[in-house]
Design a protein around this nucleic acid. Structure first.
Lengths: 160, 160
DNA sequence: AATGAAAGCTCTTAGAC
DNA sequence: GTCTAAGAGCTTTCATT
């Protein structure tokens, strides 16, 4: 089979039921031993190792990470801040966001706002100094998270 | 030591340097064997196992999860939608969001908007039908993610 | 809190279907 | 793409400090 065909085949090919079960099991506990994953999905350990290797190599699985409780770490508040840089300040604003350790996520988006950033804060007292840092360079609009009806979850894996 | 004192001690106690190194190593690859984590931080495997057990029990570590590439899974777009339910529609809107599998995260926030939801989409064609579903019950404002200057990362673990 | 030693399990590799 | 088998490596328990 020519390389180009192989590539197309990979791109079009949906995950099978076992891949979906593996990803589901890993999303619940990524530290499960291969042997246990193997029992979950009804394959041998080497087969599961091979499937994971393929999912990683295909770029579907980027890695495995730890889910921390920000509250338990002392960050009692999460804020979502929309940021519209003033003319000429776009790059400085982005640099500021990237270099602020309390920004745990930031997307650049279409529309009137340019950035949407997620901040963790130890207390409400930290909010004002943090916003002051960008107030010279951008207009901001801040929302404090009161609840999280949907915690980060898997997208549908139906026809990947 | 009385239980109440033990509790207070746990709450005030910062993570030590080894705990921070462990969490850092896990955030880079949560599937590393204990033996390898032990080598990273310069302790024995049983000591690392015990520290992890404590971090989990204290609720600092919620679990371990897989980091998927939404694009590689066929979701070529991410949208962040701000949602302001119409009078009397708050609960129905929240239910709709929770039950929509393409919503991979949703926070309830202070301010004029009530919810901020993150959607994954296979194509731009999916956006209109998805927004139509809530348009009867809420005002929405949609931003399409163009870039992600800061991918989900750890908050500072300095004085946890 | 941490350690080393040992038993039991897991992972990886190799070879076959 | 999957399997079994076997050696290397890892995890867990426990006595010790």
């Amino acid at each position: 089979m020519a390389p180009v065909l192989k590539k197309l085949r990979n791109e079009n090919q949906a995950l099978d039921e076992i891949d979906r079960a593996l990803i589901g099991a890993l999303s619940e506990n990524a530290r499960q031993p291969l042997a246990e994953l193997a029992r979950c999905v009804g394959l041998s350990a080497p087969s599961v190792a091979e499937r994971l290797r393929r999912l990683e190599e295909a770029g579907l699985v980027n890695g495995y990470t730890v889910d921390l409780d920000h509250r338990a770490l002392g960050y009692s508040l999460t804020a979502i801040v929309r940021i519209k840089p003033l003319p000429g300040q776009l790059h400085m604003v982005e640099k500021l966001l990237v270099e602020s350790p309390e920004v745990i996520e930031c997307d650049k988006v279409t529309g009137d706002d340019c950035y949407i950033a997620r901040y963790v804060l130890r207390s409400i007292d930290e909010l004002d100094p943090i916003l002051d840092k960008i107030a010279q360079r951008a207009q901001t609009s801040t929302s404090i998270v009161k609840a999280t009806p949907v915690k980060r979850r898997l997208p549908p894996l139906g026809a990947g």
